[in-house]
């Protein structure tokens, strides 16, 4: 087991130089390398994160399957937040979602990904010149509806929010652990439909999330029931304050 980064590989970078060619014919050489294929994305994400922190902007990456209610949630939530919000929306095609959210008054920009199934850090970086970070407190990034690929791409966000609507299977966290185990908050959406969907058990969803060794809070809400959004508003305000304090008090 590697002792340096705990990656699970049977050697460490320090041992790289001494590593002997293994089972290769004499004219072949085996070179040990260790490089994450997400490294290039992570480098850009780090630049994004530094820019967001410097401006005290809380960036929230919303991830879910298509149709779980990300856009409707932002439409309902943004007018209720006493903070200046902006939104980046990723979709394969159309700017329908961006136009809907823009009606809240928040600056909203569509990122059309073409055939790409997720947003990556470079797409966010390319969109940043459209935003004046000095005039924003919270940036919501509505990721492409997909429970697999977005999980692998750090965008530079402060927190990840995973949505699961009650119209879906309540065991989604067990089926898509890659996305849910990294979430900082899980939202069970469209809860107004729960009386019609007795097969969906929110406690089962949360149990699946706990199986992923996650202590992320789990909130059940409906974008059509404003009172149900209050715990989410409180969570966002707390995170925003915590982020600003961390920045202000961070040692040089």
């Amino acid at each position: 087991m590697c002792n340096e980064c705990g990656c699970g590989l049977p050697y460490s970078p320090a041992a790289r130089k001494q590593r002997l060619p293994a089972e290769a014919p004499s004219h072949e050489t085996v070179i040990a390398v260790r490089e994450s294929l997400f490294g290039a994305n992570e480098a850009i994400a780090a630049q994004n994160r530094a820019d967001f922190r410097r401006h005290g902007v809380l960036v929230l990456n919303l991830m879910s399957s298509p149709g779980s209610g990300k856009t409707a949630l932002l439409e309902a939530l943004i007018p209720r937040l006493p903070l200046r919000c902006a939104v980046l929306v990723g979709d394969l095609e159309t700017d329908n979602d961006a136009r809907r959210i823009a009606r809240t008054g928040a600056p909203t920009f569509q990122i059309t990904t073409g055939q790409a199934c997720h947003l990556d850090a470079a797409m966010i970086r390319a969109a940043l010149p459209q935003l004046d970070l000095n005039t924003i407190d919270i940036l919501f990034i509505e990721n492409v509806g997909n429970l697999v690929c977005p999980a692998s791409f750090d965008l530079g966000e402060a927190k990840r929010i995973a949505l699961l609507s009650v119209c879906e299977g309540d065991d989604k966290p067990a089926k898509y652990p890659g996305l849910f185990h990294k979430a900082d908050l899980m939202l069970i959406t469209k809860a107004d439909l729960l009386p019609h969907l007795p097969q969906f058990d929110p406690t089962r969803s949360e149990a699946c999330l706990r199986q992923l060794a996650s202590s992320a809070p789990c909130l059940t809400l409906s974008s059509l029931q404003p009172d149900s959004l209050v715990p989410l508003q409180d969570w966002i305000l707390r995170e925003h304050t915590a982020g600003r304090l961390a920045h202000v008090w961070k040692p040089a």
Binding site: T29, V30, I31, R34, E35, S36, F38
Partner: peptide, 12 residues
């Protein structure tokens, strides 16, 4: 372990 995709070696 199990979280990433890594290039671990090259055979030349």
């Amino acid at each position: 372990a199990g979280d990433g995709v890594l290039l671990t070696g090259l055979i030349l």
